[in-house]
């Protein structure tokens, strides 16, 4: 049988530290990539490297987050699962609504960034709501 309980608080803190570190790494990569790409460099290699840095940084953060979730107990995993499902549904609804609103001419172009930002915001809002419900 698989053990569904969490690791100790020290390990938990270490994993949270990895998440925070990866987030910082991604933020730095995004700032650097943004500044370089704003200058519209002609080099394909440089543009490619900046894209790789930004996406790689984000992927590192996602990987650290997944590792962190794996260390949580079964109850916390369930809360995260519900929050992620909610975030997914809200984001899908927002995407459909955005698409139709664009087609109807009510809104202009929407940045792709808004998709993951919406998902992340709803995920964390759901986690806050769950923390209040289960405290």
């Amino acid at each position: 049988m698989s053990d569904t309980t969490a690791v100790g608080p020290r390990s938990n803190l270490r994993q949270a530290g990895w998440v925070a570190g990866a987030l910082l790494l991604w933020a730095v990569a995004m700032v650097v990539a943004g500044r370089v790409l704003d200058d519209h460099p002609s080099s394909v290699w440089l543009r490619g490297a900046m894209v790789a840095a930004a996406v790689g940084g984000f992927s590192a953060w996602v990987a650290a987050l997944v590792r962190f979730l794996q260390t949580q107990d079964e109850f916390a995993k369930r809360v995260h699962l519900i929050a992620l499902a909610l975030a997914f549904m809200v984001t899908m609804t927002a995407m459909v609504a955005g698409d139709v609103l664009q087609a109807a001419g009510f809104i202009g172009d929407v940045s792709l960034d808004t998709i993951w930002m919406t998902m992340l915001a709803v995920w964390w809002l759901s986690m806050i709501a769950a923390a209040r419900y289960y405290r």
Binding site: A6, V7, E74, F75, A76, R135
Partner: peptide, 9 residues
Amino acid sequence: GVSRQAINA
């Protein structure tokens, strides 16, 4: 090996 919140829930 679980949180206090888990026991409370």
